[in-house]
Structures are given as C-alpha cells and as structure tokens.
C-alpha cells in the first residue's frame, strides 16, 4: 500500500518569511516550481504559490503574501488520504511534515500520475492497490466490511477459443454490470487482476449475498454475440470484529479477507454453486 513517503519529492525547496515576492518568483521560475513552502526556524508557517506571486506586489515580503494556514500531511498518510485532502481543499501542492519540519512535497501532477497507475483503463475501474487502501481505511475507522470476489468461469478457455478481443469485451461488460449494481457510498469496486473483480462493501454478508446474486443474474444475461454467454462464480467473506490492533493488522486483515473470498469463489466454481460464503473465517 502506497504511503505519501513513497511518492513525495524530497528534499524540498523552501523560502524564508523575509524574502520578497519577486525573489520567490525568481526562485520558482529557476527551479520550475509552482509553489514554495515557507519556513521559520525550520518550521512550516505557510506556502507561497504562483497565484500568491501573481496577486501580490513583487516588493512585498513572503510573510505578507503567503497562503496560511497551510494544509499539510504526514509522510505516513496513505496516498488516498493525500488525494482526499487535495480535493477537499482544492490545492495543487501538499507539503509533507514530520516533527514540524517540512520533509517533502507532493503535487497534483504527481498524484494524477500515481492514481493513474492504480487505474485499469480497460474496465475503467481501479486496481487491487485501490481496494487495499479502501479496505484499510474502512477497518481503521472501525467499520465492518464484507468482500465479494467474482471470478469469470473458464475465462482462459474463452480467450483461447474466441480471442482476446472477446475476452476484453467480456471484462468490460462485467465491469459495466458491477458499476450499475453497486452503490458508491457503500460499495467499492476494483478489477483485482486478470478476470477477477473485488467489491469491498459496508454491507453484511446477507446483503452482500443479495448484491452478488443480482450481479450474477445480470451477467448471465450478457450476450457477447454468437450466443456466447458468461458465467461468474462469487466468493464472499466477512469481517465483523472491530480491529484494535496496530495499523499493520488492518492490511493483514484485508489480505485475509480477499484471500478467503478468493478461496470461496474457487469452491463455488468447483461445487457449481455460483456463490460460496466464507463467513467468520477471519479472526
């Protein structure tokens, strides 16, 4: 799971309170920067952005032109937390602070690049990295979650028999069905890998079962042409206990939940039961 520390720019260029706006502008131009954290005795006190430079007289000192208070994050924040902060405050630069000192900065461009790596352009969904971060955050906030893992039956055979174009079309149609069924407030979808999709949901296992059934029914009605239909097996796992342990355990719990759901989908496939539960298997 990516943390801000993994993607931030470090060390970071800073400027002092007593510098002039024109000096800041020169510095930003020279190093091709869109903003500079302002420090006093190594502590972050503000940020001067290209907008501040534009609207303030060049003779002004940075102390009179900077934006404050400054929104910042910890190096151990997840990249999703950082994205959420940047979106909430509509900011393009987020200084990274540890023990009151600026140790790095992340920019909107960096975040776009980073999040695009977590995105699957074929199905227009996020990938597994996203779902780990979502599950991690939900567990950390004390929510109880269920995981539905959907696995296309005989996807390898389909690719071999009908070609990868049809295989891709199949995945797109499935993703489309999944998006139409889930509720973005409670359910979080990703293409986990290959022909597997994962939904992390705030619903309990019974409600997750309802969702899974609806998805499977809708998928069974997909026609890829030449009377080629799709069937999918689903595995569900559920975690009802609140985790009070160290943060590392949230990640481990997420791994366990997804793994249990994966094993459940394999059992469903083997037993031809469409959906298989693995409830309470995580403890």
């Amino acid at each position: 799971m990516y943390k801000v520390r993994d993607i931030m720019t470090s060390p970071v260029n800073t400027i002092s309170l007593g510098s002039s706006v024109s000096q800041a502008a020169e510095f930003m131009k020279e190093y091709n920067l869109g903003g500079l954290p302002v420090v006093k005795d190594s502590k972050l006190v503000g940020i001067i952005t290209s907008r501040d430079v534009r609207i303030n007289h060049p003779n002004r000192i940075v102390a009179d032109a900077m934006t404050k208070p400054v929104i910042c994050c910890s190096p151990d924040s997840t990249t999703w937390d950082a994205v959420a902060l940047m979106n909430e405050y509509k900011i393009e630069r987020l200084p990274v602070v540890e023990h009151d000192k600026v140790i790095g900065i992340i920019t909107e461009v960096q975040m776009v690049k980073h999040t695009s790596r977590l995105y699957d352009p074929l199905t227009e969904t996020f990938n597994s990295e996203y779902i780990y971060q979502v599950a991690f955050n939900l567990l950390k906030l004390g929510h109880k979650i269920s995981v539905i893992l959907l696995d296309v039956d005989d996807f390898g055979e389909m690719n071999k028999k009908w070609g990868h174009v049809i295989g891709d079309k199949c995945l797109k149609r499935i993703a489309s069905v999944l998006k139409s069924v889930i509720n973005s407030k409670n359910d979080f979808l990703c293409r986990y890998g290959g022909d597997e999709f994962v939904i992390v949901t705030l619903r309990n296992s019974e409600e997750a079962m309802v969702i899974a059934k609806e998805v499977l029914d809708k998928i069974s009605k997909i026609n890829l042409g030449n009377n080629l239909s799709i069937t999918v097996s689903a595995g569900i796992s559920e975690y009802r206990e609140k985790i009070h342990e160290a943060e590392g355990d949230y990640y481990e719990a997420t791994q366990c939940l997804i793994n249990e759901a994966s094993l459940a989908s394999t059992k469903a496939k083997r037993h031809k039961t469409r959906i298989y539960f693995n409830i309470g298997s995580i403890s």
Binding site: L17, I55, N56, H57, N59, R60, I61, A63, D64, A65
Partner: peptide
C-alpha cells in the same frame, strides 16, 4: 491589500 509592503513588513 496589494500595497508594495504588507503588514508584516
């Protein structure tokens, strides 16, 4: 507000 010197200066 956009004077050549600000309050801190």
């Amino acid at each position: 507000r956009r004077a050549p010197i600000g309050p801190e200066a």
